[in-house]
Each structure stands twice: as C-alpha cells, then as structure tokens.
Design a protein around this nucleic acid. Structure first.
Length: 199
DNA sequence: AGCCAGGCTACCG
DNA sequence: CGGTAGCATGGC
C-alpha cells in the first residue's frame, strides 16, 4: 500500500481541486495551463517571493499594487528604485528584503532568456531558498518537483510519516518516489496539503 | 493582545 | 553541522 497516494485521494475528496497557481486573483481548478505566457510566468515568480512567510492574501495585495502601477514587467522592476518598490509591496511584509529579492530573481529571469533555470541557479539568487526555488520550478516552469513547506512537514508529521527531524530533500524524496512524476499531481497535492492544514 | 502566515539570510556555537 | 534573531504586514 502507498500511504502517500491514499492521502492524496483523501485530501482531494475532502477539499476538491484547488487550482494553483492563482493568476489575476483567480484560481482555476483542474486547469493546469498557467502560466500561459511569459507575463504570467513572471507574475508567478514575483508571487513566490511575495508570499514568503506571509498569507497569500497579503502577497496578493502587493501583487495588485504592482499590477496597478504596471510594474509586473522585469524591466520595470529593475528600473524602479528600491525604496519605491518596497513601498509598493508593503502589504506583503518584509518589504525591504522582498524588494531586493524581487530585483535579484528578476536579473536571473532576464539572463535566462526563456530557458528553464536549474535548481542550483535559483538557489544562488539571494532571497531564493529551497522552497522558493522549487515553487518557481513547479509553478512557473511546470517541472515535476515537489514543494516542501511548513504545512507539508506538519502534515507528514501528523500522519506519522516523518518524525520531524528529516531534512528538506529527504522529505521531498518521499513524495517524488511514491508518486508518478507529474507536475500536475505535485501541483495539486501541495495545494491540497495547504488547504488541509490551513484549517 | 498575541500568534501565525504558501521563508530566507546572517551569524552564532 | 544545527539553532536562532531579524525581517513586517494583516487577519483572526
């Protein structure tokens, strides 16, 4: 028996399809086409920075503020002065750090010229740790990488699958070995865990 | 009034 | 290597 698969079915039955990643304030359950273009891809990347240790609601306000000022474009983010950028994303919290981080990841994004980044390249960017790197790979580039966050650890601990001392990659391996390597599945599963643990 | 959110860096022992 | 202070807004 595969407990990981069973739990997925259980969560899906309980919460339904979640429709991550939200684009333009809307979730699209059972539709994994986002990002449809580079504009949406870049919006997701900014979103992964903005939502660090913050509720999506707060990150979304910051994203709306960027959108209102027509700043969801790499060139605009880079040319904007850091203080102004920080002010614009204020509601996401940690706005000074996140303004720096947004510029850093934007530089890499432009250097890529459309190419998919490696995990190592992402991790070299200041402000991008393991979870953010994997979120970018999964949600912005549709790569079959399982994202491990606080909720995931709590969830696995609750289900007695981990003790709590396992390291990030160790936990990641549990999912990646027991599930078909599918970005849609990894996308949905992670979103379902968040839905389950949020309350 | 506190606690916690879809973390990461820097620095400590 | 592991552990922790600092970063900050907003909802409950």
């Amino acid at each position: 028996m595969n407990k990981i698969k069973e739990l997925y079915e259980e969560l899906l039955k309980k919460h339904g399809y979640q429709g991550w990643w939200p684009i333009n304030n809307s979730y699209t359950p059972k539709d994994y086409s986002a990002p449809r273009d580079e504009k949406e891809r870049y919006e997701i990347i900014l979103g992964t920075i903005l939502t660090q240790n913050t509720t999506w609601g707060n990150a979304e306000k910051a994203l709306n503020s960027l959108r209102k000022n027509h700043l969801v474009k790499p060139e605009r983010i880079l040319s904007l002065n850091e203080k102004e950028l920080a002010k614009t994303i204020r509601s996401a919290g940690y706005y000074n750090q996140k303004a720096k981080y947004a510029k850093e990841i934007t530089k890499l994004y432009l250097e890529l010229k459309g190419r998919i980044p490696t995990r190592q390249e992402l991790l070299r960017v200041k402000g991008v740790g393991k979870e953010t790197a994997d979120s970018i790979l999964l949600y912005a580039y549709k790569q079959p990488v399982f994202v491990i966050d606080k909720y995931t650890k709590k969830f696995l601990h609750r289900e007695k699958i981990i003790t709590g001392n396992e390291k990030y990659e160790e936990i990641q391996r549990i999912f990646q070995e027991k599930l078909r390597k599918s970005y849609k599945k990894f996308n949905e599963y992670h979103a379902l865990i968040v839905a389950e643990m949020k309350k």
